[in-house]
């Protein structure tokens, strides 16, 4: 309950405050958001599996976001930023799909 409230509060704050995204962050924010989504779905799956731990969640969330941003940053430096962000998005998308499939099996037994 508190977790859902947190998500809601964050969304509302983002929508209401409408902060400017700093320029240096702009290429990485979308990737970071997708990576964070992956972490969240992974956490939900682990929770349903009964192996959830909030410390692990915090660490994995942070590292996911950082690594995704780092990969894209590295790609930018190497001149393949566009392709690498596509690659990262694809990988994260696949993981999100498989996590959501596991969650679905837990919740709907289907």
């Amino acid at each position: 309950m508190i977790a859902a409230l947190g998500l809601l509060i964050g969304l509302l704050a983002g929508l209401l405050l409408q902060p400017e995204v700093p320029l240096w962050l702009e290429p990485y924010l979308p990737i970071a958001v997708v990576a964070a989504l992956d972490a969240v779905f992974g956490a939900l799956r682990a929770f349903l599996d009964g192996i959830f731990d909030d410390k692990v969640f915090v660490v994995s969330f942070t590292s996911n976001v950082l690594i995704a941003a780092l990969i894209v940053y590295l790609g930018d430096q190497l001149g393949v930023g566009g392709q690498l962000s596509t690659g990262v998005i694809v990988v994260l998308g696949i993981r999100i799909f498989s996590n959501v499939a596991a969650i679905r099996r837990h919740l709907f037994h289907a």
């Binding site: 509060i9 964050g10 509302l12 964070a36």
Partner: peptide, 11 residues
Amino acid sequence: ILAILGFSAAV
């Protein structure tokens, strides 16, 4: 954590 995610996604 989820609040951070929601915030950044909305932004």
